[in-house]
Simulated scan of single mutants.
Amino acid sequence: MADLDPADQIKELSATLESVESVLDLDAKRTEIEQLREQSADPELWSDQDNAQKVTRRLSYLESEVTKVEGIRRRLDDLGVLFELAAAEDDADTLTEAQDELTALRKDIGDLEVRTLLSGPYDEREALVSINAQAGGVDAADWAQMLQRMYLRWAERHGYPTEIYETSYAEEAGIKSTTFAVRAPFAYGTLRGEHGTHRLVRISPFDNQSRRQTSFAGVDVVPVVEQSDHIDIDESELRIDVYRSSGPGGQGVNTTDSAVRITHLPTGIVVSCQNERSQLQNRATAMSVLQAKLLERKRQEERAEIDELRGEGASSWGTQMRNYVLHPYQNVKDVRTNVETGNTGAVLDGEIDEFIDAEIRWMRNQERAAE
């Protein structure tokens, strides 16, 4: 495309943006924004805190999405004028500015186009992310904590609120496990490709002989359940333990046994919550996490049955999916999409959008092939 005339490139980008605008249905979003603004202005809304927060989060998200698309459309309209100005005045600086803006717009429109691929039944939901240290001892626990930071920094970069439900700290360093929510529409559809095993290769900071160590951590991403979801949970199939919340080094967070751990005996799924002061609140939150995990399990079982009826092998994304190598060279590579970068520091600081966008495209292609 780089050898095309700028006017032709702008025309192609405009056609792509029109397609994106059509799929996103901006008029419907503007109508919903007006309805949500009316709801948020009603003082009675805040009598139900959970619903009020849901309304305000949805309103903020829609306003951001519409503003983003409208801004890109204005920039694209202005770009043609900028190229004309550069040509009329034979101004090299203005031409460079216009070419840089063209490159930036191509990326921004491409990012919007990826969003239109999120059409799964739960893609619009918020996400629950669980990380567990796997093989690798103390290095694996440290790696799990590094991954937690990576995702929290990614959410922070995008302005997505997060809520940590539970963190189980390892004895020497790092964490055994953690569960947190990403409170943004389409967080599940965006992050579900991160599900799987993440492998780290580095010189271990915990080895006094400075040997290279390979460690693994598992990432699980499920959609947050809503009231319309129905998952039957038999109380007799639950083991509920209460314990005292704690932080790194065993430092007390609470002075009462308010943390709750729930084990679903038939499946072996274990969930915990310790972020609330009340045992009752922690239990309710833990139950919602359990429902989310059971809902995802049910969805996977249904998909496996369909694959079996089709005579296809069940495809799983829950395998090794990304390698992070810090020694003897610097490289992060996704084993499915082959996207890679040598800027490992940026990736571990939350700059993972390139990987996520490629995952979304890859998963959509896999789903189309199966249809």
Score class of each variant (00 low, 15 high):
residue 4 L to R: 10
residue 7 A to D: 09
residue 8 D to P: 01
residue 10 I to T: 01
residue 14 S to A: 10
residue 16 T to P: 03
residue 18 E to D: 14
residue 18 E to G: 05
residue 25 D to H: 10
residue 29 K to M: 14
residue 30 R to G: 08
residue 31 T to C: 07
residue 33 I to P: 07
residue 42 D to E: 05
residue 42 D to I: 02
residue 60 S to M: 07
residue 61 Y to I: 02
residue 61 Y to R: 07
residue 62 L to Y: 09
residue 62 L to Q: 03
residue 63 E to L: 09
residue 64 S to W: 03
residue 65 E to M: 04
residue 66 V to I: 04
residue 66 V to E: 01
residue 70 E to T: 05
residue 71 G to Q: 09
residue 71 G to D: 09
residue 72 I to P: 04
residue 73 R to C: 08
residue 74 R to L: 09
residue 79 L to A: 02
residue 82 L to Y: 01
residue 83 F to P: 02
residue 85 L to M: 05
residue 86 A to G: 13
residue 89 E to C: 09
residue 96 T to V: 12
residue 96 T to Y: 04
residue 98 A to G: 11
residue 102 L to R: 01
residue 103 T to D: 15
residue 106 R to D: 15
residue 106 R to S: 14
residue 107 K to Y: 05
residue 110 G to F: 02
residue 119 S to G: 13
residue 119 S to F: 07
residue 120 G to Q: 03
residue 121 P to A: 14
residue 125 R to E: 00
residue 130 S to M: 13
residue 130 S to N: 14
residue 137 G to V: 06
residue 143 W to V: 02
residue 146 M to K: 07
residue 147 L to E: 00
residue 156 E to M: 04
residue 156 E to R: 06
residue 157 R to L: 12
residue 157 R to S: 12
residue 159 G to E: 07
residue 162 T to A: 10
residue 169 Y to K: 01
residue 171 E to C: 07
residue 174 G to D: 05
residue 175 I to L: 11
residue 179 T to Q: 03
residue 185 P to C: 12
residue 188 Y to E: 07
residue 190 T to K: 02
residue 190 T to D: 00
residue 191 L to H: 08
residue 192 R to V: 00
residue 195 H to V: 11
residue 199 R to V: 06
residue 202 R to Q: 11
residue 206 F to T: 09
residue 226 E to D: 14
residue 227 Q to I: 06
residue 227 Q to F: 05
residue 229 D to E: 11
residue 233 I to M: 04
residue 235 E to A: 11
residue 242 V to D: 09
residue 243 Y to S: 05
residue 251 Q to R: 11
residue 252 G to Q: 10
residue 253 V to W: 00
residue 255 T to S: 12
residue 257 D to W: 05
residue 265 L to P: 02
residue 265 L to R: 13
residue 268 G to P: 03
residue 275 N to C: 13
residue 276 E to C: 11
residue 278 S to N: 14
residue 282 N to D: 13
residue 283 R to L: 13
residue 283 R to Q: 14
residue 285 T to L: 15
residue 285 T to A: 15
residue 286 A to P: 02
residue 288 S to Y: 08
residue 288 S to I: 06
residue 292 A to I: 07
residue 293 K to R: 15
residue 293 K to I: 12
residue 297 R to V: 04
residue 298 K to L: 14
residue 299 R to N: 11
residue 301 E to G: 05
residue 306 I to V: 14
residue 310 R to M: 13
residue 313 G to C: 03
residue 315 S to K: 07
residue 320 Q to E: 15
residue 324 Y to W: 03
residue 326 L to G: 03
residue 329 Y to R: 08
residue 333 K to L: 02
residue 334 D to R: 01
residue 335 V to D: 10
residue 335 V to R: 05
residue 340 E to W: 04
residue 345 G to F: 09
residue 348 L to Q: 09
residue 349 D to Y: 09
residue 351 E to Y: 07
residue 351 E to W: 03
residue 351 E to S: 12
residue 362 W to D: 12
residue 364 R to I: 12
residue 365 N to S: 14
residue 367 E to N: 03
residue 370 A to M: 13
